[in-house]
Computed example of a mutant assay.
Amino acid sequence: MRPRLVVDYGLAKRAALAELRSGQLTRADACDAQPYLLRAARFHGEPTETPCPVCRAEPLTLVRYVYGDELGRLAGRVTGTAELAAMAREYGEFRVYVVEVCQGCAWNHLSRSYVLGHEEPPSDP
């Protein structure tokens, strides 16, 4: 399972945290995870050892969502890493979005996205 077309949203995260620390962004605006996302983190997320950058009291949880034309009813579903490997063998191409969530203060941020699937990307002529 080799991710391709990886997009890292680290710069956006650093900008949001800088705005929060400077007072341009309120904590209520930064820590605004929807109840569905918090439930997904609690029941389907993968815990990390990385502390929340806002409250520093809770470790972050990673929630992975999958989207793609081939996925049908699976599109928009929360998926674990073990299931991603099986899906990568079954489907040609789909995108995975990884969201980091703090279950303590409700901080959430899109961390990265990437494409998986058994089809190789088109080669340039």
Rank of each mutant, 00 (worst) to 15 (best):
P35H: 07
A30S: 03
C105S: 03
Q34L: 11
G68A: 13
L11K: 03
Y97N: 13
C105E: 08
A16R: 12
A75T: 15
R21S: 09
D32S: 07
E49Y: 07
Y9P: 01
S111Y: 09
R4M: 01
D29K: 05
C102D: 06
A40H: 05
V115N: 08
A15H: 00
P122F: 04
Q24C: 06
A88R: 02
R21F: 01
P35Q: 08
Q103A: 13
A86F: 09
G72N: 14
A85M: 09
Y36K: 11
P59H: 08
A85F: 11
Y91F: 15
A75L: 04
R39I: 01
L62S: 03
P122Q: 01
G23F: 04
S111E: 10
V63L: 14
C102I: 11
L5R: 14
P51D: 14
V99E: 15
A40W: 07
V78E: 04
Q103D: 10
E83A: 15
A15T: 01
E19I: 02
P122E: 01
G45I: 03
V96R: 12
V6K: 06
A40N: 08
E90W: 11
Y97G: 06
T50K: 12
A82Y: 08
A15E: 01
R42Q: 14
R89C: 14
V98W: 05
R4I: 03
V54I: 13
V66S: 03
Q103L: 15
A15P: 00
E93W: 12
E93I: 08
R42W: 11
Y36R: 13
E119N: 06
S111K: 14
R4V: 11
R27Y: 04
Y9T: 01
A86T: 11
C52W: 05
Y9D: 02
K13Y: 03
G76L: 14
R4K: 12
G23R: 06
C55P: 09
P59S: 09
A82K: 12
D8H: 04
V115T: 11
D29G: 02
W107A: 00
L74E: 13
V101C: 09
S123Y: 06
A86I: 10
T26A: 04
H109N: 12
R14T: 00
L116C: 09
L110D: 03
G45P: 11
G80E: 10
R77T: 14
Q103R: 15
P125K: 05
S123E: 07
L25D: 04
Q103K: 11
A86K: 11
E46Y: 08
A82C: 03
Y65T: 06
M1D: 02
L20V: 01
A16T: 12
G10Y: 01
A16P: 09
N108A: 06
G117I: 10
T48L: 09
E70N: 08
A28T: 07
T50M: 10
D124G: 02
R64G: 02
D29I: 02
T26C: 05
D124M: 03
F94K: 03
A16L: 14
T26H: 00
